[in-house]
Amino acid sequence: MDRRDALKTLTLIGSTPLLAGTADGATRGGEEFVGVLVDTTKCEGCRSCEEACAAANKLPAPPKDDNVMASERVPTPGQWSVVNRYKTSKGEVFVKRQCLHCCQPACASACLTQAMLKTRQGPVIWREDKCMGCRYCMVSCPFDVPTFEYDKTVPKIGKCQLCYSRLRAGKKPACVEECPNEALLFGTRRELLEEARRRIYRNPDTYLHRVYGEHEAGGTLWLYLSAVPFEEIGFRKPVDNAPLPQLTKEFLYAVPVILTLWPPFLLALAKAIRGPKDKESEAGDAQ
């Protein structure tokens, strides 16, 4: 990250208060957020996306054997995207999991160095040169997405970057490009939500009438369509609909108030109360 970029992010943060966000939380700095729509009814579990992700991000190649899907997996430092198989009320369903790229990400608001950064286009990226490895992002993420390399001398935080560098070069995320079944669709978040609703409207009996990620944690860039209740396909953790950074908002707003009001108050108090030994103690010491 060069100087100019750093300056840009600083002014970006300065001009658009992270906490305020926008009305729908779906845009920043006038640019529309992008996203990916996952149609779990179309996924066949071929795991091409896992391979594409590893290749695009120079991660170790994912295991070839499909038996790895026998148990539920979560993203790891070495594999940012995993496909899980679920036995559901409507048969086998495959679900790709990765960072959901929240519209107002808890991880980025938790990060004290802005190593986790919500970019203007929407992807939440991690920047190696900033991160101090405190893992507060992991504590804060409602989906437990970021992972940490506990076994490394120079550890990194691993999570999906939504192929930010590819997007900047005008390309689609690698997983979307490689999916042979059109289970993944890339576009602006607004278009994707419209498309998701269109699909539900056209096939009301196939789809659950809900788009996961529309409201969860204040909305996410990754959106999911499903035929079965989301609890059956791994989305079990309760997640609030309010954006998480709002939880610390009041506290953070109180800080400057206390910082400006406390000292004069304490000073006035100290001056108002004259100790019995005031003169003495001024000349003396703490004893």
Binding site: S109, A110, L112, T113, D129, K130, M132, F251
Partner: peptide, 28 residues
């Protein structure tokens, strides 16, 4: 806290102003 940091050499970032995560409680 320093012992617990995975990348402690970057602890100077939020101090020298290289990167201020002003919305972070931990920063504060």
């Amino acid at each position: 806290l320093l012992l617990d940091l995975g990348r402690p050499w970057n602890v100077i970032n939020p101090i020298i102003g290289n990167s201020f995560g002003v919305s972070s409680v931990l920063f504060l």
